[in-house]
Amino acid sequence: MYNFEFVKPSSVEEAIAALKEEDAQPLSGGQTLIPTMKQRLNQPSKLVSLLGIAELNGVSAEGSTVTIGGATPHAVVAADASAYPALAALASNIGDPAVRNRGTIGGSLANNDPAACYPAAALASGATIVTNSREIAADDYFQGMFTTALDEGEIITGVKFPVPEAANYQKFEQPASRFALTGVFVAKYADGVRVAVTGASNDGVFRWTEAEEALSGNFSADAISGLTVDASDMISDLHGTAEYRANLVKVLTGRAVAAC
């Protein structure tokens, strides 16, 4: 890979200052960034590690909100987010144990891989993405695959999840990468049901609003049996056709509801 300068600040302020340098990039767990750099597809001048910033690491629960520090590894979320069991379960099934010890929620959301798990949780939960400068609603945050509302030099300091009455994430793994070939997160709140789908669409994570409407009226797998998913927007690749992914969206949504 190309060489770069490595710095490890201990505060958010120092990190933001370091990121002002041209071509400086934040480094969180690095589980996607480092493989990308090995392929020489990314050439930062400086990598600013966020793992030395204590305030970015950890899970807290207050009232009906679970807040996760931006640099919290998946393994910590899996172990500590017991106030939001579906989220903890999702974290416990990302990648593999080594990836979960390094990869972070902030890194995942900032990257917004179209097959990543966390975007589905954040979108279905109506989470708030907290950055060093503002708060962004999940509905505004995800802007297509690998694209988010984050500005240059802006980092995710935390994510606030309103805890739903019931929730479940169904991940159907792509057999090689073990990312989600399709994943569906269903969250039931007092004011309605939210359904977010990852892995399936050319536009990245999305809400399946027809299912949300149907499930908000009748929270059972039967409620969506008459719905169809339009395959024309779905990804078609070596691992699954668009029609197959459209089927998975429906099947997994039903299973998620049944498991709630």
């Binding site: 490890k8 589980q31 480092i34 590690s49 080594a98 990836v99 390094r102």
Partner: peptide, 27 residues
Amino acid sequence: CDTSQCGACTVHVNGKQVKSCTMFAAE
């Protein structure tokens, strides 16, 4: 491998299992 999947490079850092090919020495 070079995509962080095979795990042949697995070591423990501060007691936690990590892939040493997907972490910088400086870290």
